[in-house]
Design a protein around this nucleic acid. Structure first.
Lengths: 339, 339
DNA sequence: TTGTACGCGTTATCAT
DNA sequence: ATGATAACGCGTACAA
């Protein structure tokens, strides 16, 4: 029952034909006797032949595999996008390999190295952004790639699909301002990350538009995988820093913030309004209702894949793809106003 | 800037040495002049050589890649396990490809076919369980595999790592009973799935132990990816089926149940107690505090990988691995009692 | 209609 | 210490 892998050679031996007659029969080529073909296909099926795409890939240089490199698949934001990418890729007969960088530069480098070594046809990467060098390395190797969700402002020849983070930051902040909050804690991500910088810019813009001063103490940077956000909220709330609302870099931070505030005996939204980013709840029916900025993860994922496939199929087109997907304000209870 | 892939041949030409000297120098073999090695490694680095593991794989028959096949990576339960597996695999220099079955038989078959075609060294799969045939197909191809989280009772030669679902079902139900609930809605998964059947058995056992009748109307099956759970809760709560507590197949169902109940104007835990399964909140700090059954996802993931690596490295050992990881009751507010 | 020969990039073996 | 050759499994071009 328990067998070894069947090769064309095995089938050739079994049928007394040559390897490549078998090969062509299985690929439904024309120049083969109908009877022979049926016979070979029957034997192949019976023997459980699966084929070895490796061998073909070595020849063609194509693997029909793409690498998806993200910070952490366990983060729902990435999990959703990875799922979307896998689904779209499957439609085009592509398979994905998933690599986590843990937002670390060396792990990112290693992930890229692995991907290239496995001869993936393309790479979709949410860069950790410690520097553009890792991405340049992809480029140097001639492997098509698309950045997902983050970009390098200085590198105009890196293609990307991002969401409109500036606008998202602006919308979230303006919403809180309109509800009467003037001291807004920005629970931001690390400033090396473009989306964090752009959300911050949106935040500042909203404040300036209303003539509200930007308080640097209320602008905090938090590691994405470290639990920093909880500590920040805890410390600032404990010392009574005066804020009445929180704009979080992502929904995970927002959840942590609310978790911590409640643990400290505060109420949301009564004592503190909280808004997140990513709108994870568009897919999950959580018992808790968190206002958030929607960034169309499906659209981003599918678009990134389309662009990548385009680049794979038209290697020399030289088209530049710098795409920004809209962001929208989604109001739920965590920022409900109390007139 | 934008280059082609560098091969050993390129380096050989650049250095005037033979392909195979270059190969050995890069692999730090002994029988090579120290100076030559340094030189070659220098040139390789400068040219950005990455190597083509495909070619090596063709020779060795090993890809250092394993396939992880799950229902849906966007489900946090799977997302967490995929992350854990990737991390553990990385330590052993393995890469993972991720395939979603969407709990569908044909997609599962296709996923397995793809995995085998790509010559993965092994497969970790959470089977959709429409039948054992797909798994038998893996076996027939001689590819090592481990079932994760589900098993086929009749197939003793399928290795698996599962959680103690019977006990989990028992613990959850007993807890609700101890809090005075006698009509407990079981928001279960599809009965083809072993974990659903085993949790049901635990549920029944707890009821019988207390002499509480099993009401078949309160035992419901719900598709894992379909939103059935919401509808079930809505319908049964609307017709006033008399239950006062819910034991959900997983945390996702539990969230949906609470979402729906609240939407209908009910309170949790005051009107309905709800307990889930998977204890997603061991990793995420959600604002909502859901009682759940913990099933040690890390332990399961890591163990599944260890077993798989064992099977890969000792192909003929013939060891059988049937492992059950403990489940524990985690109490939070969604089942808080009101004495 | 079918078979033979060669190449993809790498590595193991054997020769120099 | 280094080079030549064969082999992995398949596909393509060409020969029979």
């Amino acid at each position: 029952m328990d067998g070894k892998k069947i090769t064309l050679k095995d089938i050739a031996q079994a049928t007394g034909l040559s390897v490549n007659t078998v090969s062509r029969a299985l690929k439904d080529k024309e120049d083969i006797a109908e009877a022979t073909r049926k016979m070979i296909q029957g034997v192949a099926k019976e023997m459980g032949y699966v084929g070895n795409s490796l061998a073909g890939s070595l020849r063609s240089g194509l693997t029909r595999t793409i690498a998806v490199i993200v910070g952490d698949v366990a983060n729902p934001h990435f999990a959703i996008m990875v799922k979307d990418i896998e689904k779209a890729a499957r439609k085009h007969n592509y398979t994905i390999i998933v690599l986590n960088t843990e937002e670390d530069n060396e792990l990112e480098e290693r992930a890229i190295y692995t991907a290239i070594g496995k001869n993936v046809d393309g790479i979709i990467i949410c860069p950790a952004q410690h520097s553009p060098d890792n991405i340049r390395f992809i480029q140097r190797n001639g492997v098509p790639f698309v950045l997902l969700g983050r970009r390098f402002e200085g590198e105009t020849d890196f293609d990307y699909v991002i969401s409109d983070d500036f606008n998202g930051g602006y919308l979230a902040t303006r919403h809180l301002l309109e509800n009467g909050h003037e001291k807004i804690l920005l629970l931001n991500g690390p400033s090396r990350i473009s989306s964090a910088r752009e959300r911050l810019a949106g935040y500042k813009h909203a404040l300036k538009e209303r003539g509200i001063p930007v308080v640097s103490k209320l602008i905090t940077e938090n590691g994405v995988l470290t639990g920093d956000a909880r500590k920040t909220v805890k410390d600032l709330a404990a010392e009574d820093a005066g804020f009445t609302a929180i704009f979080a870099f992502n929904d995970v931070f927002a959840w942590e913030a609310i978790y911590m505030l409640r643990k400290m005996g505060h109420r949301v939204p009564e004592d503190y309004a909280v808004i997140g980013f990513d709108n994870i709840q568009s897919r999950n029916f959580f018992p808790f209702s968190l206002s958030s900025i929607s960034n169309s993860k499906s659209k981003m994922s599918r678009r990134a894949l389309d662009i990548l496939l385009n680049k794979i199929n038209n290697p020399k087109s030289g088209n530049r793809y710098h795409e920004t997907v809209e962001t929208r304000l989604i109001l739920r209870e965590s920022t409900r106003s109390h007139a």
